Amino acid sequence: MRGLIVAGNWKMNGNQQFVDDMLFSLNKVEFSESVEVIVFPPSVYLHAARQQAKTVKVGAQNIFFESSGAYTGEISPSMLSDIDCRYVILGHSERRAIFSEDDDLIAKKVVASIENDLVPILCVGETLEDRESGRFFEVIARQVKIGLSLLQAEQVARVIVAYEPVWAIGTGKTASPLQAQEVHGLIRRLVAELVGEQISESISILYGGSVNAANAKELFSQPDIDGGLVGGASLKVDEFLAICSAAAEAV
């Protein structure tokens, strides 16, 4: 049986005091064994967060696919492994839209993560235009297929997928539990077509899109939703802890 994952993406927010305060608060909590809690601070605070974290795991918000070289400002997957950071978010809609990352680049990052013993969280999702035109799953299927295209079947089993409808990120709008479940079910069936049902049933598929304490339990209770990639609500410790509690109740 798949457990649930609550992943807090802090994006470009906070400072050292914020990191200290958040981890001090999180370290006091004994989380359910059935819920894995991960926080993703800005890269400049990764090492400090990794050293302080006791009850949660720490991941990075992005990497480059090369191990080293003249890539000013980038972080390699081997650097994350060096500080024992085991998770990385890839293909987030903000990386795709603002920084023009395409599916092929994201696929290179996914395979580089796996090769460096990292767990990639591959983000996929449609815009409002895609949703309203009815071609939303065509877009998501392309992102999934290309994102996983450089992996062997057994490597796909180590990937986490996050469905994030772009129209619901930071807008306060949320896909209804049934809308989210429909897409999660389609993604799981797509992965089954690519690498087999056994692997498809084992991977975690998270929902990301204005997850909060009020909607988390109903979302996480859906059969193919295995937790959440939480944005703004992960910056407020009480709200984030409430989402973690909702996950524990939904298992």
Rank of each mutant, 00 (worst) to 15 (best):
S100I: 01
W167H: 07
K109H: 06
V183C: 12
D102P: 12
A157D: 02
I140N: 08
S176W: 08
I199G: 06
G196H: 11
P165I: 07
F137I: 12
E197P: 06
Q181R: 11
K145V: 07
E201T: 06
Y163K: 10
K145Y: 06
H92N: 09
A216K: 00
E132Q: 15
D117S: 15
A213V: 05
S100A: 12
R158L: 13
L151I: 07
I169C: 07
I140H: 03
L90V: 14
H184C: 11
A97E: 15
T171I: 13
A216T: 06
L105N: 03
W167E: 11
K145H: 03
V195N: 02
V195R: 00
L118N: 02
L150A: 08
A192R: 01
A153S: 11
I169Y: 02
E101Y: 07
E129A: 13
K173R: 14
V159K: 00
V183H: 02
E115T: 01
R142Q: 15
Q179N: 09
G134S: 02
L178F: 11
V191I: 15
W167F: 14
A97Y: 05
L128D: 12
I146M: 03
E154Y: 14
V183F: 09
I169P: 01
R188G: 07
P165S: 12
I121T: 08
L128C: 05
N116H: 15
K109T: 08
G125W: 02
I146L: 05
G196S: 11
F137H: 13
R189A: 12
F136S: 02
L190T: 09
E218D: 15
V110G: 00
N116I: 08
I199P: 02
V161L: 14
Q198S: 14
L190W: 04
I205P: 00
L118T: 05
G147A: 01
R131G: 06
A157G: 12
G196C: 10
A180G: 02
Q181W: 01
S176R: 10
Q198F: 06
D104R: 12
L105K: 06
A168G: 00
N212I: 03
R96K: 13
N212F: 08
S176I: 07
A107H: 02
E129T: 10
L122R: 00
T174W: 08
A175S: 14
I98D: 15
A192N: 12
P120V: 03
I146N: 05
L150W: 11
N215H: 06
R135P: 00
N215P: 04
L128I: 09
I187N: 01
K145E: 13
T171M: 11
S204R: 15
G196K: 05
D130L: 04
S133F: 00
A213E: 06
I114S: 00
V195I: 02
K108G: 02
A107Y: 10
